[in-house]
Design a protein around this nucleic acid. Structure first.
Lengths: 387, 387
DNA sequence: CTGAAAGCGCTTACAG
DNA sequence: CTGAAAGCGCTTACAG
């Protein structure tokens, strides 16, 4: 018989603690149903000083006698006082908040960028706020709204594509903004050159003798996705070939802009069902490439494949990929934003990273593959997962 | 020659837009270097009404003449006015903010919980704030600090382990809190029964004839990790066996509390180097299990393995696992929090999900494996990755 | 339907 | 070193 959980022996839903309302309140007359939290006035009164002095203590002003400071600090601790963020925010006209605006939160690119952002924010005295915009036709309105409210002192906007006219319109709020994975002349930005990445990945495949190179793409409205298609196309053209439209495929779902394992799977299936098979594949993202690899395994047909991103799992899958320095991008975004908050009139700066080709087993050429595996007696079309 | 990025043809660092300071400001005398944003006073003056009326329009009060409303709305649009969150917050004593407090942001469990949280918050008029606490000895202080500041109207605290005494101490701030992946009698909570999950996973392995079942654990200070060890132990004991200490292993790194691929890899390697090999393995988390699978591949030795979580990739890896409904947990956490904000005196409620065993290829018994693979001429010890 | 006024909890010149 | 006072930008009874 399966284990009967301990949890059920836990105390049943317990009534709120009897001390529920027991905030220490020496001055305010508490109504039974409402808690008044302790303010600067309470501390001032108790300490026998003015609120200005209390405020100074919490602002690390030097102009406070040691005696007052000690007393106030001690009282504050005892009474559980802490300056309230909103009131400070209003009085100082500073929120000490940085807002990250992002369309899809559950996305590996974003996750890793976010790690870098967290890291850098941790070194500052800012807090982080995440504003998740919904994919719809009013992206601009959503971005504008979240800026208008004036909650944050600066904004990192990730993977949001607006027209240059719209970006310019946002200028009127005169608030520090850095763009990640996107470009506008108006704002500091950090991105990766998708065109270059796609070009070099495709070129690598061409140089290794592949003739019929497919591409797995995401939804067409995605800017990086468009750029990667144009890098792919240029590489083909520079190599004297032409783009074959049916070799560019994508999955059916529009979830996460098409950057899903499922989409990659579907795309690869459709590639493998082509009358004339491709002989290699450049893939828009690692997550799609991983789905594509699964499709190849399921079909027992193998194409060398190169992804884009270098997410945490790619190494494990032996997936060759164009690496984006996602974490660094996040760190740099915060650095730039903090600089601009400090110095609003500095020149706008754009940083464009060149993605770096990371070669692993998934892109091994059939020939090399055959050679390597001739030690064993496997066929050429083995799995691309390291074994 | 590799592609020379377009990016370099972009305009060089451009000087800020000449219209930089062009916020429309009919009343305030702008100092050249400073932008005063438009307030309720500006609108009121321009519309020839009092600020109370303007405020009413933005608070959807019905007590405003259609004439005033139209005029104010139109002016607001023209002048780019929007109520400022901080000022509203102070006046209303409500921030419309929910804060999520979490130790490790880049963790698959958190990510999926966060998705559910986002989903639910999106249906409300709250915004999301993320407060990332650092792993150190003052966890309590960090949690207390972030609550003290009074920034949010409610807190979802994820995977933070405090003593019951400490949880109780936090009560004095009298603010709505829901715990995720953690328990205290004081607060609403949603969690999964780790003991039960580990018990049932281990039991499943025992029922399938395994004798020497290892366990890959995370760092010992993690509560879920402890619970999973005790579930594992109980299952063994209920089956009349004893826990063999050297069969419980972990990796060397303390990063992310030991919930890493690397740690799983190391743990499995040490298991495979034991003089007497285990014949199956229960693993504390999927991410560790994935590392463990890699270790098995590298060593060419195979043990049936069951993970814990069911992260997105587990299906791809054919990893059997105890599934936690992470997304649902996130949704429910927000639901509970919103309820409590509405109704602070409602009874405390605890929801404990039972994890569910999801069987995939990684836990297939050697016998079944042999049978299945007799069609091909593989040996029993194949890779656990689906092929 | 509307306005004057008090208040939210702080900060910060200014004047001692 | 300290206090009185004005101000941050809103909301909300209260009294028309």
């Amino acid at each position: 018989m399966p284990y009967h959980p301990e949890a059920c022996n836990r105390p049943p839903d317990s009534f709120p603690d009897p001390n529920y309302n027991a905030v220490w309140k020496p001055f305010n007359q508490a109504r039974e149903d409402f808690i008044v939290s302790v303010t600067i006035y309470d501390i001032a009164k108790e300490a026998g000083v003015s609120i200005a002095t209390v405020s100074r203590v919490f602002n690390n002003s030097t102009n406070v006698s040691e005696k007052s400071r000690t007393k106030i600090l001690q009282l504050a601790k005892k009474m559980g006082y802490h300056p309230q963020a909103m009131a400070q925010g209003l009085a100082r006209k500073k929120s000490k908040l940085i807002s990250v605006i992002v369309p899809v939160i559950s996305n590996y690119f974003f996750m890793e960028v976010l790690e870098g952002i967290q890291e850098q924010i941790g070194n500052s005295d800012f807090d982080l706020n995440i504003y998740n915009i919904k994919i719809s036709d009013d992206i601009f309105d959503q971005v504008e709204y979240s800026i208008k409210r004036g909650m944050a002192e600066g904004y990192v906007i990730i993977s949001v594509h607006l027209s240059e006219r719209e970006w310019k319109a946002l200028k009127k709020f005169d608030v520090p903004v850095t763009l990640v994975d996107e470009y506008s002349a108006e704002y500091d930005s950090v991105s990766v050159d998708s065109v270059e990445g796609a070009y070099n990945a495709t070129r690598y495949l061409m140089e290794n003798g592949y003739e019929r190179i497919a591409m797995i793409s995401a939804i067409s409205s995605s800017k990086p996705s468009q750029d990667r298609i144009s890098g792919y196309r240029r590489a083909l053209e520079d190599g004297g070939r032409f783009l074959v439209p049916e070799l560019i495929v994508t999955g059916s779902s529009r979830a996460r802009d098409g950057f899903t394992e499922k989409n990659g799977y579907e795309a690869m299936i459709s590639l493998l069902e082509l009358p004339e098979l491709p002989d290699a594949c450049f893939c828009n993202s690692d997550i799609q490439a991983i789905g594509a690899i699964k499709a190849m395994q399921d079909r027992g047909k193998y194409l060398p494949i190169i992804g884009f991103d270098d997410i945490q799992f790619s190494d494990f899958f032996g997936l060759s990929t164009m690496r984006q320095p996602m974490r660094e991008m996040g760190e740099m975004a915060i650095e730039k934003l903090l600089n601009r908050i400090e110095n609003p009139d500095a020149n706008v700066s754009h940083t464009v990273f060149s993605p770096e080709l990371v070669l692993r087993s998934s892109s091994i050429s059939p020939a090399a593959m055959a050679e390597a595996s001739s030690l064993r007696d496997d066929s050429i079309t083995g799995s691309s997962v390291p074994s």
